[in-house]
Amino acid sequence: MSDIKIRASLSGDETTVKCLMSHPMETGMRKDSKTGELVPAHFIEEVVCKHKDEVVLTANWSGGVSKNPYLSFKFKGGVAGDPITVTWTDNKGETQSASDQIKG
């Protein structure tokens, strides 16, 4: 069970992909309100988005992207039923991947 939600829809020649990831996105600069200690950095560094086997978008992030990140992108040439794969890797080396099909 993956925590990445993907929705890909086709409009004319353009495919719009919207995805929502589940991640704390800690910058490493925030203090815990109870203990007063810094919360260690824990954020997604890289997101790779693929249409079939072709990389369409590579995102590199800092902790400045909001918690539970939202990402939307567009590309041309998709066909209904094509797989879209989104994979993220965070600064602790954890990784998660999910895929969905383009809806016509």
Partner: peptide, 17 residues
């Protein structure tokens, strides 16, 4: 905050929070 690299048939559009 973020950088996005486009390749292949990507359209220069990106949306995030």
């Amino acid at each position: 905050i973020a950088s996005f690299d486009f390749s292949g048939s990507a359209i220069p559009f990106v949306s995030t929070r």
